[in-house]
Amino acid sequence: MPPFEPNIHVDFDRPDRRYMPGESIVVRYEVDGLGERPLLAVERSLLWYTEGKGEEDIGVHFFDRRSSKTDAAKALEAGSFMAVLPASPLSYEGVIVKVRWCIRIRIFFSGRDAVPERLGGSRDFVSEHVFEVGTIPPAAMNIGAQTA
């Protein structure tokens, strides 16, 4: 049986992955490394999240779920989608908090512990592919005095 090491490859319509608010984004994705295990479902989403020292915040701008009950297996393993980006929030590389936009592809398998233990040992696998919205420059570093 071929090895089961799920991998999700995502192509953006812009190789530099830089977009402006109101622009459209086109994404193609392909799942490989499945061995002979079939997918139960694929969730495709476009979202922003915060990353930092506080509680995570998240906003889903686009979400779509494809299931093996309604779609052919090949349609689950590869596909594309398009969305128009909203006016906010813009990507921001702060020190204490960052705002990130990403394409998230989540795939589900049958059975328990479908993913190898060293990859997490879970029944699903999520791949997030970061891109940028807007052109806010990164924040300056000023936390040294607090923590030195």
Binding site: I8, V10, P15, D16, R17, Y49, E51, G52, K53, G54, E55, E56, E93, K98, C102, R106, V115, L119, G120, G121, S122, D124, F125, V126, S127, E128, H129, V130, F131, E132, P138
Partner: peptide, 25 residues
């Protein structure tokens, strides 16, 4: 527990592995 692989954008910005996103209960 879900396995999450984060693939950063090509020109930036490395995910901080100590953010609460990865460490919160």
């Amino acid at each position: 527990m879900t396995t999450i692989a984060v693939i950063p954008s090509t020109h930036s910005i490395t995910t901080n592995p100590f953010s609460t996103r990865f460490t919160t209960p």
